[in-house]
Amino acid sequence: MLKYIVRRFLFMLLSLWVIITATFFLMRLAPGNPFTSEKKLPPEIEANLNAFYGLDQPWYKQYWDYITGIASWDFGPSFKYKSQTVNDLINSGFPVSLTLGLEALFIAVSFGVLLGVIAALFHNKWPDYGSMVIAVLGISVPSFIMATLLQYIFAMKLQIFPVALWESPKHTVLPALALAATPLAYIARLTRSSMLEVMANDYIKTAKSKGLSQRAITIKHAIRNAILPVVSYLGPLTASVITGSVVIEQIFGIPGLGSHFVTSIQNRDYTVIMGMTSFYSIILLVCIFLVDVAYGFIDPRIKLAGGKKGE
């Protein structure tokens, strides 16, 4: 078990190193220098700026500084907004994104599992078909279309919820729903098929012949085992919620990390793009790593020593 964790941890670090390095060199390839603007800078000032940001150093020195910077949780400056650093943006934006993400995660997991269980219990009856229609729709409608749709119907036409911004809990409902829709659908499908598989097992028959109620069988015996694939899906789920929030925050005008990321892309603020990509990668990879490890603890049947990983 420990060996497995260490191994996975090393691979996570390797993946991180690859993406941070790739980001660094890609950004050096990007056209234009960071101080390109309408006004041509006097050469002395440009030299000073270069010295200030360490751009006069050879590339390996810059690279080393960048890596050590990230290792000490310093994601670099912003070239467009001189007084801001990427850390400032993260500190102001991440709590907002985290709230939104957790809310979406909660909606997706609770309703997804509920739909899946209902579908499996009423296999091939109308609740099953109903849930699966919802699931197929959820998978087919991309999150940003879902977001605009919800915005149009519930905010503009019916005026039940605010159109945009991030001020009260009521403001969080529509964005969280939009963000949760696709993962919810996936979880519903996963739960359904895994419930069906579990329900066909002998120990469920035993439980039934012992005279246990349907409710006790479902809750105590079936769901516990059927939930495992959902747990292993939590890693990719976190990824989709985090990247999905980029667009959702843009649509609803939420001042989260995603909005900052989009702004930096539109401004071509290379150092911010670089820093944020690194930050996002760290968050994502750590989440996936934690889910993998947790999965090993929850399901003792899984053989950790063999290099077989979940899909």
Partner: peptide, 18 residues
């Protein structure tokens, strides 16, 4: 495996920017 660990959309965004 190392490539698989890299978040897909981030790579795509990065390459499109550059």
């Amino acid at each position: 495996d190392i490539l698989y660990g890299i978040p897909y959309l981030l790579v795509v965004i990065l390459l499109m920017v550059v």
